[in-house]
Design a protein around this nucleic acid. Sequence first.
DNA 1: ACTAATCGGTGGGATGGCAA
DNA 2: TTGCCATCCCACCGATTAGT
Length: 296
Amino acid sequence: MVAQKTHLPKFSRGETPPKIILQKRDIDLLEALGKYRYLTTSQISKLIFPGKHEQGARRRLTKLYHNKYIDRLFLESGFVLGEAVYFLDRDGYKVIVQERGYEGNFQKKNRQVKPIFLRHTIDEIEFRLALEKSVSELEHIELVKWYSEYDMKDSHATKRKDKYFIYDEIFDPNTTKVISVYPDSLFVLGSSGREALYFLEVDRGTESSKKIIEKMRTYYLYFLSNKFSKYANVKRFKVLLVAHSHRRAESLRSNVQGSLGIENFLFSNKETIKKKDLLKKKIWFTGDGDRISIVK
DNA sequence: ACTAATCGGTGGGATGGCAA
DNA sequence: TTGCCATCCCACCGATTAGT
């Protein structure tokens, strides 16, 4: 009998999946997907297969995919198909619950994410990975907390304010309306008992300067409200605005210069964060255009 | 108890396929 | 066409299993 050479389908699972025996590293991989929710092939390659060719990660991911441990979507980049983005499927979820005592819930809706939102989420995860790497290289700094937009109080909630963990309402004295702040992520850095609070805003590249100025004002009122002190023992915070490119970051910064609340903001971009240490290096621009680092 | 065969993992390298 | 992913070949390793 001649074995049929069949291609495994790219957009669905094959009828006869390749055989697989889970290794410790596979479970590490599944656990990472539990923690970050979505990861691209290159992110997984760096995280789980450090110093190895990406091909090895791919081969493993393919097997895990066809054996229903994980699922995948593809990013869109212009006219060509982009990188694969992996996330837990039910079998993979069961494995980390059993093997590692994973406490998160299984997210059925991972596959339903809109492409634009997925891109944004991946950018946020990229920032988190860069932050964790930076923290690991600094002896006296620790990442005390990280909350992403997905860390929801209640995934069944219908109202936004019940849905998001990071959500606060503030009263606007000018319009006498209630406005809300819900950042992409929030994190707290700790250093010898002292804490620093940061909010992350990943620029989608589509927001107007006017919107950014409004957002800045919201954060200013939020600052006055002191409601943020429930997240950390601090009297102030910084909002890190990460744009796609240096160009976009600079254009945003110059357009909103001098607006109310600008002193709470720092500007940088994805390209720079990919190349340079985001805590130690002077890659952050203040509203006035001074370059500073987050830690000395 | 010892050996051989087998199976899947790992990794390098080369080639083919696919969708827009 | 481009940028990815899938496949195939080769070699070697370790664990398991079958046969003696």
